[in-house]
């Protein structure tokens, strides 16, 4: 049974991050995921300082606010003339440092250690349960299901809006789409996804799950919807294969899952039909051969 919960948690992380990550890649703001995955720590600490509790709801709210704050500050610095990557770098290091400082100052004796936040421990997931409507499931599963539902609802309602404002924001604005509101809503979802996932796989590996599967899907998709399906598939595949390999080799589950994301990316990059690296090299060799024949 424990194995089932760990697998389910991993798969939910794969699906949710895979889904959310698609627009991070398309908007070319993959690095903001890295920033948010660190600044949610600040949100969680502040939520803890205010409520003195480590309950999931407050964590989600604190993380959402921290994510919005990150997005907002990055936006402000950018419109002040700073490049996006520099703006992200400045904002996330300062908020993260502030989070670490607050932990050591005000929450030193609580179970909120930085290592856990960064690395997570998916193997402990089954023991931390919540009862909702008489159903007992691991807390991580509840939170991930909730966030997955939010993500799906967002896309069901605003699919064409987020697609257009990603592809052509200027045109989107000209037909009256609230592109800034879309941006902030989406970044809120990224924050929520991050915090729901990082309790199990850790902040660093959330970034891998947010970016890796979507980047892999980008290599082989002709449409946004196709990219979403592939991205979620790769996320789940990495989670499941990662779990069994970790068991086989008795190593870190989250670490193995992240490694599998890299493996899948490489496989697709090399073997993808028509413009994968291998295929291209093969075609180039064939072309050279015909050229040589034609010339001789």
């Amino acid at each position: 049974m424990n194995e089932f919960w760990v697998l389910l948690t991993g798969s939910l992380v794969g699906i949710t991050c895979g889904l959310t990550g698609v627009f991070l890649i398309l908007r070319k703001t993959a690095m903001i995921a890295d920033a948010i995955s660190h600044t949610v720590l600040f949100g969680i600490v502040v939520a803890f300082m205010i409520t003195q509790s480590l309950s999931g709801y407050w964590m989600l709210i604190g993380a959402a606010i921290a994510g919005l704050l990150t997005t907002f500050l990055v936006q402000v610095l950018q419109s002040g003339g700073l490049q996006e990557d520099a703006a992200i770098g400045v904002v996330f290091t300062s908020l993260f440092a502030l989070g670490v400082l607050f932990i050591t100052l005000f929450a030193g004796n609580v179970h909120l250690d930085v290592e856990h936040v960064l690395m997570g421990e998916i193997a402990f997931v089954p023991w931390d349960t919540w009862d909702v409507f008489g159903f007992s499931m691991p807390k991580a599963v509840w939170m991930l299901l909730f966030v997955l539902l939010l993500n799906v609802l967002f896309l069901v309602f605003f699919y064409k809006e987020i697609k257009l404002s990603t592809f052509d924001p200027v045109f989107a604005l000209s037909i009256g789409l609230p592109i800034l509101a879309m941006h902030y809503s989406y970044m809120t979802l990224v924050s929520l996804t991050t915090v729901a996932a990082f309790d199990s796989v850790g902040a660093v590996l959330v970034v891998a799950m947010l970016i890796g599967p979507a980047a892999t899907a980008y290599l082989m998709s002709k449409s946004v919807s196709g990219m979403i399906v592939w991205s979620m598939t790769f996320g789940v595949t990495a989670a499941i294969t990662g779990y069994y390999l970790a068991k086989l080799w008795n190593t870190s589950i989250a670490g193995m899952m992240a490694a599998m994301i890299g493996v899948i990316f490489m496989l697709v990059f090399l073997f993808k039909p028509h413009d994968g690296w291998i295929w291209k090299t093969f075609k180039r060799m064939k072309l050279q051969k015909t050229n040589i024949q034609a010339n001789s």
């Binding site: 398309l26 697609k163 592809f167 052509d168 200027v170 998709s221 449409s223 946004v224 990219m227």
Partner: peptide, 10 residues
């Protein structure tokens, strides 16, 4: 040149 023509769409 205002958009990214590598965007996955037809």
């Amino acid at each position: 040149n205002a958009v990214d023509w590598d965007f996955p769409t037809n």
